[in-house]
Nucleic acid binder design. Structure first.
Lengths: 325, 325
DNA sequence: GTGAAAGCGCTAACAT
DNA sequence: ATGTTAGCGCTTTCAC
């Protein structure tokens, strides 16, 4: 394998010049630059990443920690991180914590020994642990906000408000909300939108596991309340609600309206297709990765806290309460 | 940040001994080992990965290349790779190719500059390009076999045979097969199982895109043939077939049976739950990562070609053709 | 703009 | 079992 020395020698310049020709082309006269590039090409030169990293103190590796790679929500964020990473010639180290918040802390620390910065999607890790991790190296939060740490979140309160306005316009007056994990930033902020619309009564069905199975129990509760629509913490839960309602013989939307959150791919595949709040997951991943780029964030600036807009997508699972005659 | 020298000094030993105490404990007397470990602990020593990598020539990084992270099929494989990597104290660099086979080659090569070995899930990259990549460094294929390259695949022909036997037992005599991409190893091998069961006529519906949308067109074709059951290349397609049939008013399983492949999580969420062939995706990821461990594979041995067993999971989308009276 | 030289922090012969 | 020594391949002052 050809080294930089070989290239320099072949080009008749010093290793320093060869290095510069490759990484800071403008600081080398065009003649020599050309010779170096040509030699590198000819010898099939591939820089040794480890040596670069050791000498420069930077890896060009980004870390990404998330609860579950097989969850389309997180997978989509991961795609966004990848996309941005590739454009800034970084690589992404992904670590899945298997939904175990206790494991997250160790995973982050382990990753921090290997990367220049970490994107952390951790709905449940205790705040003080996150602060501790942030002290060890650059870190950006996704879907959660902590004072003093850069983050990318979604304006879910607005999403909730849009949802309620939509349902009210369809003549619904009593709706049920299937909550997510109690400790989640994301659920707290959805709830902030719950009382933002006059003329709608919201029945709180309490916290539920944010997965398909969580929707089963919730569906039965919803039916009991007399609500005409059920709004769910996320699409996975909403899908569970739909399944359960259908198997109990309740038609959607005629017997009950259902709204999800997130707009994961599965929300369009189900029948009826789910009305849901689209959150720009991939964009969030990109933005998070960008916030990690040191050249873009002067160290003295306040940590950026992005709040991305969301949009209600109306599909088949919501309809006027009483259809026109 | 404390370095190994600092630790050595604090423990009153040479850097070499300190290094050994940490990485090959048995080669150091227990007294000194203890002192080193204690000093490391006290100073909060964290080895510098770049330096280790440069000196040893190994990164403890594994690469994983796949078409689409948001596809549950690949996401599950990724989880398996992660699991095994963690146990062997490796980290995983994931690269998504956005389903673009032309991009795969570059992505793999880029990754190979950063990792000790690559797990490649690439249904469509041309064989010669894969061979070229394999020549550059350790590489294991998943869900594809190429002579001379270690791989982990599934016995999908057996899965197909199990499916046909099941359908025959339910009195089906004519079934339709919705194929996947023509060039895919995986589709070729499914087809090998197609003629393995006597007494069943299989109508080939031709290649389809292996996603939900692909199932729509296929559903209409299937209806036209008079088949009583449709077997699909994968669950995503099967889900599409189900959607389309239902929206055309065909009940499942009474009007048509549907079988998928892969047993992705979504296959249980749909109504009716999908009969499908479960393939051990996570296990495949693990095995692939293990094959990459140099300590387990003597360089002179023939490349391992694992073929994992699959199992038909019978759910609600298949039923006897003519129910008992 | 260019080169010489000094490391980055660690591992692995080699010698003892 | 331990220490000495030499790099691994690159980046980056510093002087010119």
């Amino acid at each position: 394998m050809a080294t930089l020395r070989d290239v320099a020698q072949a080009a008749g310049v010093s290793p320093a010049t060869a290095s510069r020709a490759l990484s800071a082309p403008d600081s080398v006269s065009s003649g020599r630059r050309f010779k170096v590039l040509e030699a590198a090409q000819r010898l099939g030169y591939q820089p040794n990443r480890s040596a670069q990293a050791l000498a420069s103190g930077r890896n060009r590796h980004l870390g990404l920690v998330l609860p579950d790679l097989a969850n389309p929500y997180f997978a989509t964020i991961a795609k966004g991180v990848q996309l941005e990473a590739r454009e800034s010639s970084n690589a992404v180290l992904v670590a899945d914590t298997d939904e175990d918040p206790r494991r997250e802390h160790d995973v982050v620390r382990e990753l921090q020994t290997r990367v220049d910065g970490v994107v952390l999607c951790s709905p449940r890790m205790p705040e003080e642990q996150i602060l501790e991790c942030a002290a060890r190296g650059p870190l950006v939060l996704v879907n959660r906000e902590i004072e003093g740490i850069p983050s990318v979140t979604f304006d879910v309160a607005s999403g909730m408000r849009q949802t309620l306005l939509h349902l009210r316009a369809l003549d619904h007056r009593t709706i049920a909300y299937v909550g997510g994990p109690e400790t989640s930033w994301s659920d707290r902020h959805r709830r902030r939108g719950l009382d933002s619309v006059a003329g709608i009564t919201v029945i709180d069905l309490g916290p539920h596991r944010p997965v398909h199975a969580g929707g089963f129990a919730a569906a039965d509760l919803a039916l009991e309340t007399g609500a005409t629509a059920v709004v769910c913490f996320n699409d996975l839960v909403a899908l569970g609600v739909v399944s359960r309602l259908q198997s109990r013989g309740v038609a959607i939307p005629s017997g009950m309206n259902v709204v999800g959150f997130d707009n994961i791919p599965g929300s369009t595949y189900v029948t009826p297709a789910l009305t849901t709040v689209a959150v720009p997951l991939q964009r969030a991943g990109r933005e998070a990765a960008m916030l990690l780029d040191p050249s873009l964030s002067p160290a003295d600036a306040a940590p950026a806290q992005l709040r991305l807009d969301v949009e209600l997508i109306i599909r088949e699972s919501t309809a006027p309460l009483t259809p026109a005659p």
